[in-house]
Design a binder for these strands. Structure first.
Lengths: 211, 211
DNA sequence: TGTACATCAGTGAACGCGCGTTCACTGATGTAC
DNA sequence: TGTACATCAGTGAACGCGCGTTCACTGATGTAC
């Protein structure tokens, strides 16, 4: 976050003026745009610089390398999932509870639709073992996982470990958010995806589960 | 598959003899081994050659580039999930059904434990948009998704779209398989993960779901 | 069993591209008085 | 309002590394007779 707002400083420690902050912003935006069409592994400093119409040397005034720029983007984006946590505040019961689950899932999909490229890249890097990206991902998802975990724990059910269940649900939601467009080409509508996923979440969280 | 067994041919069309097939095999094994410690984007032809104790030129007798070698690996590995489909054959009901779900989830985790590096890389490449890796992934998961989908369809429940539900469950299982080791460092045991995930699967597939 | 030939297999060495990165410099902006 | 100075910002041009890739060649293996 600090890495993205105006308080950021150049790598040599200078404070950033208006002009510098704007350039940094443009570099980040270009990075995000390029991620839409290519993976992190094909993203060159030269490309980013060219996209902004500047010299590669400029890039190095603000970021040590491409990863650092992407990480800054991922941090900023990750924070925008915060509002979803509010949906986990009230008790989920009956039709109103199901409705909350729907909003959670729908919010997740919207969040991904808005930031697909950055989120995908963040997760790829995290899975490849990059600890910085892991941390950023956890920071973003942890509150949701914990919120769900608390809910599961409230109605303790044999066989269900709250944290494992919450992790499983978050895993499912994230993956559905990442893939729902593909799924839709297989005939499931977006509404189907949301409703179905929401019901699985709701029932795991609040229904009694057993054979 | 053809790409992996002895019937494979060199890139110039020559048939492969015993010696050539063995070299190809060693190159693939080295590729798999290196994927354990580095991502696809850091995997160099030079590294693979060195690992096998051969010249880079040798690599090019068998594969056009690193991607092609990894793809061959992914194909071979993907096929090994086939036995899991058998678990979807019988009707799932009562305790026996839950037990089948457990075996499915457990099998998924074992499958990933055995081939983590290759599967992770396959999925990363697929998500980055590489169609060849997408196809390989689908080929491996499609039978499972369809099996689950049929089961969901058998007890039609309001609000649940069978294919969407099956996709969600597969998404969840795959992610749990990929992440269960991390989860265990958060306190959930492997048994917790299997039992919890299995119950979510079982209940989505065979239980009535509604508010 | 031996010889000649065809094909399979492996490689040393080199070329060249593309990218990351840096440096010394110019230009822009801000501020003190 | 103008001038001098400090700091911020941007860049052209170059260097060099590392890797992908190829080619002409040597060596190994197989087979026909």
């Amino acid at each position: 976050m600090a890495a993205v707002n105006g308080a950021a400083s150049a790598l040599d420690g200078r404070a950033l003026g208006k002009r510098g902050a704007a350039t940094r912003r443009r570099l980040l935006d270009a990075t995000g745009a390029l991620l839409e069409s290519k993976g992190l592994r094909d993203l060159r400093v030269v490309d980013i610089a060219r996209e902004v119409g500047t010299s590669p040397a400029t890039f190095y005034q603000y970021f040590r390398d491409v990863d650092e720029a992407v990480l800054a983007l991922a941090e900023a984006v990750g924070e925008q999932s915060a509002p979803l946590v509010d949906l986990l505040e009230p008790r989920w019961s009956g039709e109103a509870g199901l409705e909350s689950a729907r909003r959670l899932v729908d919010g997740f999909l919207l969040f991904w639709d808005d930031h697909r490229a950055v989120l995908r890249t963040r997760n790829l890097a995290a899975q490849e073992g990059d600890q910085r990206f892991r941390d950023v991902r956890n920071q973003s998802l942890q509150p949701i996982t914990e919120g769900l975990s608390r809910k599961v724990a409230e109605n303790a059910v044999a066989g269900i470990a709250p944290y494992a269940a919450a992790a499983a649900l978050v895993a499912m939601m994230e993956r559905m958010a990442a893939f729902h467009l593909d799924l839709e080409s297989y005939g499931a509508t977006r509404a189907d995806v949301v409703e179905t996923t929401a019901r699985i979440v709701f029932h795991t969280v609040s229904g009694p589960i057993g054979p």
